[in-house]
Design a protein around this nucleic acid. Structure first.
Lengths: 192, 192, 192, 192
DNA sequence: CATGAATGAGATTTCATTCAT
DNA sequence: AATGAATGAAATCTCATTCAT
């Protein structure tokens, strides 16, 4: 048990170290040696948990995407009406991103990079099933535009990455009011 | 004269080689040796045109961003009404991205990566001045939401990167009708 | 334990390889690749022991200077009278240089080159403290000229480098009698 | 004529550029490109005057050594008595080194380096013929120790390099009194 | 005579990964 | 299970030299 816990801790430390390094200088600056040093293990130890650097990054992606999804849908109740549900999810996503800037920044960086395997990326998409279902329902009810969910995603969710980026670069700090404005824009874009 | 042309050609070939390599495997896989080989020059020759790898990538970014901006605003006429103008620009941007997939994909990849110098990134922003002016005008006329231009950008322009990505991965091919739908969504998001 | 010994052996082999290469063609001809090959390790292995080529050369300098100093002062006894002491040290120095030609030649080469960090050079000077003390004593006793120790060094010790050089180039082989003559000259230069 | 002069000027500029670069960072930092830039010519032009980098350095050595010798013996009159002559030469040498620090420093650096061809080094020795003759005469007169001129050189002339070095590194600034002290030491070392 | 452009070879250094212990 | 040592391969960049003009 204690042994298992130590193992988990090490894995976590390695993921965390990778996250921080990738955020600060891109994947190229996250060398296995640096990751190992920050996580306080030997480079060789990494390979007990991950098959390769690619695997390490992939697993990190899934890990972070999982946390993100969990946060996003934690308040979600299927009884709520569509707009309310969407708002809950959207706001929860924004909150997660503001509270976990490293994770958020990492996910943004993954979006358009060959950093992550296509396969793993697909895997990550599954976390959004609930959202897609919600949109389906909204479309049936005539509340949401009857267009590809990818479009809905592109215009209502994806922009958050850009906002986070601005916030990080201090170009447009995200206070509560900006968040609310942004939600309004998101909703206007997809509602009928 | 012929000499100058040869120089320009070589520079262009180098930029093109870099573009293609970065697109296919990220900045890390675009080694100077590979770039040189594809451009049919010696590695040393690269340094006649670019100070360093970082400089090469920065210049490529500005180059591509410049082409993009030029295409975006080529039809732009300040006499048009705001919505018409915005539509022209938006459609021109989409067209550019569809016709120059490599360039588009590269710009997306640059968005959230430490690949590009902050300074160079700022430089790249200048190309969008006209768009920001247009929004200003729209806000004054009460046609466009009175919010930060960054938000307007995030929800009406930035999503294109995601769409391009989908198209590239064959997840949502962009035909004319999808483009039109997407424009409608973009406009709904920022209009009052 | 065996591991530690192997480490030490490798470091030594690297230093030795560097010594030999620098002697034969100057610092520029002692490439890391050549050093590695001669020491029978991979180039990457060098960096387990030395931070950089500069560090490698600096450490070699200190190493050799240390050996030299140890040899020089091994017979030194503070009870001896000044001239006797000086003679012991001088002769020991000459003997070291004759028995360790590579080391001697390397030290000469370091003398007036930007090869070695100023800081490291200062560090190397410390090895001569005993000699400076001896001169101090001699000056107080009125036996040695009351001038800067740097001058004393320049005229009584530094010339050995030139002699070594001659010997190496077979221009003036150093037999015992020449050594004795030379010592006489050295002593005449600094004695009152 | 004007053409010839321009040629000579270029050669001089190249030598000067090399001198300065070698002094500041050793031979390795004097790249042909840098030399060319400082001398305001194209890299290719260097090869109109010098066969190779080695040749450039060799010629510089002979050039500087020549200037040094000329200065050293400019006051020399064969009628003077030996000590007077030696003093004149020694002081003239010191003066040259103080007034032409770059040249002096360069010569020091050449002393124990494989920087200069053995052949060229031999060539440089010829400049000292007069001095060797003077010593011959002194030995015959019983004024100077009857030992190899190499030894005489090592202890009375060679130390100047060390002094210059100290001066450059501000460890022992050479004023007139230090120079006079030093001459006394030099003379004591070789006189009977 | 003079050059700017071009380069192959090679410099230093880093990296992902392995393996004996 | 865990590691520190070791490395081959490759990365970025520099250099002495050449050659068409």
């Amino acid at each position: 048990m204690a042994q298992l816990q130590k193992s988990i801790d090490k894995r976590t430390a390695l993921l965390k170290a990778t996250l921080s390094l990738v955020n600060n200088g891109g994947i190229q600056s996250a060398s296995m040696a640096k990751v190992a040093k920050i996580a306080n293990v030997s480079p060789a130890t990494i390979y007990l948990f991950f098959e390769s650097k690619q695997d390490l990054v992939n697993q990190l992606y899934l890990d972070v995407k999982g946390s993100f999804a969990q946060a996003a849908f934690s308040q979600y109740e299927s009884d709520d009406e569509v707009k309310k549900s969407f708002e809950k999810v959207w706001i929860a996503m924004a909150a997660f991103k503001l509270e976990n800037k490293e994770e958020a920044s990492f996910l943004s960086q993954c979006d358009n990079t060959p950093m992550i395997d296509e396969e793993t990326r697909q895997e990550g998409l599954k976390y959004l099933t609930s959202l897609f279902d919600l949109w389906s329902k909204g479309i049936k009810e005539g509340i949401i535009k009857d267009i590809s969910p990818y479009l809905l995603y592109a215009f209502s969710i994806y922009p958050m990455a850009f906002l986070m980026n601005l916030d990080n670069r201090s170009l447009c700090p995200l206070g509560e009011n900006v968040i609310n404005e942004a939600f309004q824009v998101a909703w206007d874009s997809i509602r009928v």
